[in-house]
Each structure stands twice: as C-alpha cells, then as structure tokens.
C-alpha cells in the first residue's frame, strides 16, 4: 500500500511537470468512422450521456488545480453549443437524465465501458506507437448488442463526450517564457484534450470516434465552446445519400419530462 501511494505520488509529480498526453501518443488528432456507416434519413434521435468535463488551472509546477466555476460554465457552454450544432445537422438530442437505481447503474456501466473501449481504439488504432496489426484495416470496436436496453431512454444512438482542460496559470506562462529564454527547450503550458464517440445502440458498434490532444476553443466562453464542439464533432457521420437535412423544427428533449417547446 505504501509503495503504491509513493509510486502514484511520484508519478503525479513527474507527469504534471513533464509529460502532457501528446508526449505519450504523439501530437495531433485522430478520427475514424466505422466502414460504410451513415446515419439514416428521416428522424435521428441521439442520446447524450452525461459529458465528462473538467476545467482547471495548470500551476507553475504543472499540477492540475480543479476549478468549480470554470467547470460549471464550461458544461453549460458545451451543452448549448452541442445542441446548436446538432440542430444544424437535423438530429434531435435527448439528454440522459440523472437516474437512480438499476437504470442509473446501467448508464454508469455503459459510460465507463465506452471510455474503456474508446481508450483501446485510440491506443491501438488511432494514435501511432501501439497500433495492433490485427486492427490495421478495420475500425470494428463494439460495446456489445446489449446496448439495445439503452434505447428505452429515448434514442437510437449514444453520444459520449470527454474534455479535459488545464489552463496555464500566469506562473506557468512566465515559466514557459523563461524556459525559452534560458534555452532549455519548450515548457508546455496548458492541457486541452478531448474526445467524442457515437455508438449505434441497436448493435453496440462504435460507429465514430474523434479525439484531439491539443484542442482549441476556450470552453469558459460561449464562442470558445462552439469552436470546441465543432472540433469534437469533426468527421461526424453523414446522413445517408448526403442529402441536406429535412426542413423541420428541431427539438431537444429530456426523457422523463414533457418534450421541450420546439425551438423557433
């Protein structure tokens, strides 16, 4: 027990000070769509699972200091931007509510499963370094067909989002400049990573996954969150035949309540 704690703390110190995620995976972004997958024509209802959004400051020494106010603001901004973005695509979003009991556990289990599977896909296919030969050609990860149970929540697809922001503090930025002046190389300032995925709940297949380890857009502002959401949804699956979206009012509903008023 002592060893674990010691190792963990040493690792935290080391990681915080040196290695942002892109040092592990290489830089940049990656996305994939399951072969031949397109969203059907007509109405598409997408369940939005509780996004995991973390916003804080990066201290001078590189630690992540969580910030409650920024995180709350970012959650509101990102959800608003997401609704606008999906409305433009002609899909209806259904926000998965906070659930108790068995349904709550089911949602928690699938959220965790998605994150695990998405992590595997990133590690073994999308980012260079650990690519598996057996996954070279196919993007065929799945959560299993029992995701069918989740359709009772009111959607045929599940959308999962994760963003993690650590904004460089003044001290960190000063250190960055000093590092450049002293010629010791680049001191990274700030961590901005995020990913999103879509699961077809009829089959459990992960049909689209997109991640970026150096995301743009300051999620603490409405405009920044729009930019962030646009980046998160890059390469989002198209509609069948690529026809323009049907012309009708979009709605966002929360299951368990009466549908919200259609947006003007």
């Amino acid at each position: 027990m002592k060893r674990w704690m010691t190792a963990a703390m040493a690792a935290m110190l080391a990681l915080g000070m040196a290695a942002p995620a892109h040092a592990q995976f290489g830089a940049g972004e990656a996305s994939a769509v399951r072969e031949d997958f397109v969203l059907p024509q007509g109405e598409v209802r997408i369940l939005v699972f509780r996004p995991e959004i973390r916003v804080g400051a990066q201290t001078m020494g590189g630690m992540h200091e969580p910030n409650a106010e920024w995180t709350e603001t970012a959650k509101g901004n990102i959800m608003a931007a997401l609704e606008a973005e999906q409305a433009a695509r002609g899909t209806s979003l259904v926000i998965v509510p906070e659930l108790d009991g068995e349904q709550g556990e089911l949602v928690a289990d699938y959220t965790a499963l998605f994150q695990t599977v998405a992590g595997e896909a990133f590690q073994h296919k999308l980012f260079p370094g650990n690519r598996l030969p057996s996954k070279r050609h196919d993007f065929d990860w799945t959560l299993g067909a029992e995701t069918e149970q989740l359709r009772a929540l009111g959607g045929d697809y599940g959308l999962f989002l994760v963003t993690n922001d650590s904004y460089g503090s003044t001290g960190r930025k000063v250190l960055q400049v000093l590092g450049a002046v002293a010629g010791v190389g680049l001191v990274p300032s700030g961590v901005h990573m995020g990913y999103a995925g879509l699961v077809d709940l009829r089959t459990g297949h992960l049909v689209w996954l997109n991640g970026d380890l150096q995301m743009g857009g300051d999620v603490r502002t409405a405009e920044g969150a729009q930019k962030r959401v646009a980046q998160l949804l890059e390469e989002f699956p198209l509609r069948a035949t690529g026809q323009p979206a049907p012309e009708r009012a979009r709605e966002v509903t929360v299951t368990g309540e009466t549908p919200a008023e259609p947006k003007p």
Binding site: L13, T59, M60, G61, M63, L175, L178, A182, V187
Partner: peptide, 19 residues
C-alpha cells in the same frame, strides 16, 4: 497537502530552469 505540493512543485519547476 495540495497547497504544499503546489508550492513545492512551483519551486521545482524554477529549479529545472536555473543555471
């Protein structure tokens, strides 16, 4: 503990640059 670590890692980061 968090405050303590924050202060000390701040100092460490300066150390890493100091000639």
């Amino acid at each position: 503990l968090f405050r303590n670590m924050r202060t000390k890692t701040d100092i460490l980061s300066i150390f890493s640059l100091a000639p």
